[in-house]
Nucleic acid binder design. Structure first.
Length: 112
DNA sequence: AGATTGACCGTGT
DNA sequence: GACACGGCCAATC
């Protein structure tokens, strides 16, 4: 296997698997998740999967932020407010209303 | 099956 | 740094 999506057959499953691999205290961008899922240009579709995702316990969709670290949408709680609170509570570095990607962006293992 | 929408991203002004 | 435009992909109506 060369990527986290090798065990998935559909795009949504790949996305879920990638997001599920994000460790606590770290965040990934939609573009990053899309790339790991096998569709480097499907950042929007990733958002759709999160939106339709019902397994929030298995898939920490709140750890997925915009390319600039901005928190975009959240289908649960009070939206981005709840999302931000959870990320901060998990130890993610924040800079104003945006996650500090320079410090807390998830760095997937390229080799293993 | 076709058209529209959406939790995006990159680039230009 | 903020606003505007276009492109890409998949789910939903």
């Amino acid at each position: 296997m060369t990527s986290l999506a090798d065990f998935s057959n559909t795009f949504s499953d790949s996305v879920r698997k990638v997001v599920a691999g994000i460790p606590t205290g770290k965040v990934a961008t939609y573009g990053q998740v899309a790339e790991l899922a096998g569709r480097p240009r499907a950042a929007r579709a990733v958002g759709m999967v999160m939106r339709t995702n019902k397994d929030t316990k298995a898939v920490p969709c709140h750890r997925v932020v915009g390319s600039n670290g901005a928190l975009t949408g959240y289908a649960y709680g009070s939206g981005v407010t709840t999302k931000k609170q959870m990320l901060q509570k998990e130890g993610v570095a924040f800079r104003g209303e945006r996650a500090d990607l320079a410090v807390s962006q998830w760095q997937p293992k390229i080799q293993k």
